[in-house]
Design a protein around this nucleic acid. Structure first.
Lengths: 243, 243
DNA sequence: ATTATCCTGTTGTCGGACAACGTAATAGAG
DNA sequence: CTCTATTACGTTGTCCGACAACAGGATAAT
């Protein structure tokens, strides 16, 4: 046996379009390319990098999917920051691909969202409380399952947004997105649970107004249990995969 | 005023490369394209979709960046599932780009991780407890900041993994990744806090063994406070951006 | 049997071309 | 002179065709 004395890294020669991506990404991350600024035209980039326009375009597609650039005015590409919603979508899809079940998603929400509610109780301001009232009003008006899902999702979202912590918001956003997509599959059976959901939301708002963290968390727990109940009543199996 | 009677959706005609992406993505998500299976060659795809190979390639770049395909043997593309660490990294970078602060990340963890600890107290089995003991032992042995960060991160990870809920795991993974990268910036000052951290971990394990949810959550809270303390002692500003 | 060599299929890159589309500039109507 | 219609132009989206670089398998030579 020769016994490899030292194994060097595979020494990957990345293709040119990757180099294009790296170069532009670097300039975006470092701030040399400001947000909302227009990217040079494909032709200019091709000239600057000294590669063919097709190659530039492949790099642009990478940047596009990475969420770092977007079509701006006149079809030109502009630099943007990845929207949290997109990131949430991507994260959710990744989980879905791994075959996570409704139960896992629901459980994760049951764990995290009450904690977020407790935090929200300390930070919600008058405007945000009004927004919550609005959402509950919508919920009570809701007749179809779609509307109920939408309002429940909006409610959770609003609570997550309280406190102005973007990390908390994005984290819960992806979870809410997943649970919503699951609930939408069984919307027809949800109107039954609509009342219970709205009641829990109302009680929670009461706790928020009183600044009662413990009660807020408890009501959130109940609210989330109601979501599961709706899912179960619809006869959907808890271990079915989300998507 | 003409008064628009009804505004139709912008009716976006997506470019062909986007259609290619959508078509392939759909087949991957639905499972029609199995994991690890080879994608048809660019030429074949071009023929099937009836577009030019350049167009196909742009679509492939989108799929590549989306993490749905990867270069396989003989340079051919193969179908893969996005790895959760990758997703976590991506989510983290997105947040970093939005300029989230250390405080936001820390706060998010302070909100979520104790809740996860409470959940873990109900699900940790003997093996997992042993693994935690191992981690604490490492923590006590740790001299450098790097080692402390690594063990703290491993500890949080292990707690997140308890209960076998992948959604919980992935969610906390990205947060832990972010906080770890911040702490690594100030590792030199961390050894001071090493002892406190290890003590909190030990106490938490005790609570886990006793199945005491409340105590577990409380100790986790303390543990996370210690992480912040370490950061503060290092003189790093809480509102500094993570990266 | 093992190694060196050629062959073939695919990707990476290039050059060029043209239609579709938006924007900005220009001419025309009031 | 303002406002609308039209034209001209710049840029993207897509196509065509071509070729070198490479990896893997088949083949020939040792």
């Amino acid at each position: 046996m020769k016994a490899t004395p030292h194994s060097f890294a595979p020494l990957k020669r990345s293709p040119a379009y990757q180099k294009v991506y790296d170069a532009v990404e670097s300039d975006i991350l470092s701030g040399r390319l400001a947000q909302d600024s227009l990217l040079p035209t494909e032709g200019e980039l091709a000239e600057q990098f000294n590669v063919h326009r097709s190659t530039v375009r492949e790099g642009l597609r990478l940047l596009e999917q990475a969420g770092l650039i977007r079509r701006g005015p006149a079809k030109r590409m502009i630099v943007v920051r990845p929207e949290s919603e997109e990131t949430a979508t991507r994260a959710g899809r990744s989980l879905a691909l791994h075959g996570v079940t409704f139960h896992e998603v629901w459980e994760a929400i049951a764990i995290f969202q009450p904690a977020a509610a407790r935090h929200a109780a300390k930070h919600l301001d008058a405007d945000q409380l009004d927004a919550l009232d609005e959402i509950v009003a919508d919920a009570r008006r809701a007749r179809t399952g779609e509307e109920i899902v939408a309002s429940a999702s909006a409610f959770l979202q609003q609570v997550a947004a309280a406190g102005g912590n973007r990390v908390v918001l994005v984290t819960l956003q992806s979870l809410n997105q997943l649970i919503a997509s699951s609930l939408e599959q069984v919307v027809d059976e949800l109107p039954r649970a609509g009342r219970r959901i709205a009641d829990a939301q109302s009680s929670m708002i009461g706790a928020f107004r009183a600044g009662d963290e413990v009660a807020a968390a408890a009501w959130m727990q109940k609210h989330i249990d109601d979501l599961k109940r709706g899912y179960e009543v619809a006869g959907a199996p808890m271990d079915s995969q989300v998507l």
